[in-house]
Amino acid sequence: MEKTLRVLNRMVKDGVIEQYAIGGAVAAIFYIEPINTNDLDIFFHVKESSAGLDIMAPLYKYLSGLGYKGQREAIDIEGWPVQFLPVFNALLEEAVEQAREVRFQRTKTRVLQAEHLVAIMLQTGRLKDHARIAQFMEHEAVDQKRLAGILGRHGLIKKWETLYRRKLK
């Protein structure tokens, strides 16, 4: 994992991506119990100049140049299949901007905050997202006031109250 993160940091340093943050199951693992997962979801900012173009092409070209091969929709980087996901809405944009900087062994990286992860899962709304939201609540891994603020800003309060029949504190 550390080698994978070093490659991602190098992509930022070399200007291939503007900024990234770990999302998905690996980000969730930071806050709750370990979850079995096979890939590393990386949300990244798209450069303004790339709008309308094939935004993934420069990433694949750069990584292919370093010898990393595609594995269906992911790219195997130092033993981890990495799924690159461009920021595609305001919630993700805020989430990546406000991601927390953490260390994995000796390498710095960025992980989406717990409250943003829950909001994104609520927005995505698959059955497994709801199961994972339940794990976050069970582990008391979210600040409910902060979560309420995020849900409010992104029009998700009603969805939360409808699904979970409970108001946030």
Partner: peptide
């Protein structure tokens, strides 16, 4: 208890599962 492990320890568990 598992949730209280460090990030590195949790990823080590995940790597074993993988």
């Amino acid at each position: 208890r598992l949730a209280r492990l460090s990030f590195e320890e949790k990823i080590a568990v995940v790597n074993k599962w993988r």
